[in-house]
Amino acid sequence: MLLYALRRLLLALPLLIGITFVSFLVIHLAPGDPVELQTGDPSIESSAQAQKMLRELYGLDQPLHRQYWNWLTRIVRLDFGRSFAPDGRPVIQKISERLPVTLLLNVIELLVIIALAIPIGVLSATRQHSLFDKVTTVFVFVGFATPDFWLALLLMMLFGVQLGWLPISGLRSLNWEYLSFWKQHLDFVAHLLLPVIVATFGGLAGLSRYMRQSMLEVVRQDYIQSARAKGLAERVVIRKHALRNALLPIVTILALSLPGLIGGSVIVESIFAIPGMGQLMVQAVFARDYPVIMGNLVIVATLTLLANLVADLAYGFVDPRIRLAGRRSR
């Protein structure tokens, strides 16, 4: 098992380098470059000299392979470089001040989705074609089809403007520093409530449908038949025999959603004025801020590869068949 994990890790390394190389190439080939965007506004009379200076400052005057090599030699020392934005701040600093919020929001969102989607999926599967099944199906698809920003604005209008119960945007009230310890936390939770509701509502459909599907497949299996034939109570059949097996594919899906945890939702973040990764990334892409884009990409790629590995390992852990098969094939 350990050996397997190590092997996989070693194999992931060239893959990671490959990913960064292709991304680097694609990003640099995209039309527009940061210097042009900073100085190319037709209303700014920018001298060719200013452009040249910025190009040198960013190292964009060198050939592409040279630029990639420079970047790579820095990244292996975990030096993400400085942003091309006029603030010129270290990329790692920019990412690390945005990451916690996004992570927190996404983890809460994921937990709420799991807590709701699994029971919904199981219940709709065990009572297929019942009223509950139909109502939840409609409900989750409405959630799936509702545009985030529209729902967000409606909720903000109702709870923020009309009723005045919840704050509309941001993470903290302006007087946050002056609140007592508990009030600070309460304030924070109040600010997170609407964004979490909006994000959850949209994400519920996917997982609950997977769960329902997977459950429907499992209950048709022979071993469920035999469990029932043994005279086990339906509750035990579902919880112990069916659910555990039906959860297997869900584990994969969840593991693969790990890298997604650090990529924020642009829409939710913009509407609720939450300073997260989504906003940072979009701004970086618009400004062709290569170091920030690449920095984020390296983190996401690493996490994706790790998540793949974790998914495989977890799979083997939950399902002995896979572990054995894996051994034989080697």
Partner: peptide
């Protein structure tokens, strides 16, 4: 200065 990227949110605030 509060950073609020959405004009709609500014109006609601």
């Amino acid at each position: 200065y509060r950073v609020i990227p959405s004009q709609a949110t500014i109006f609601l605030e």
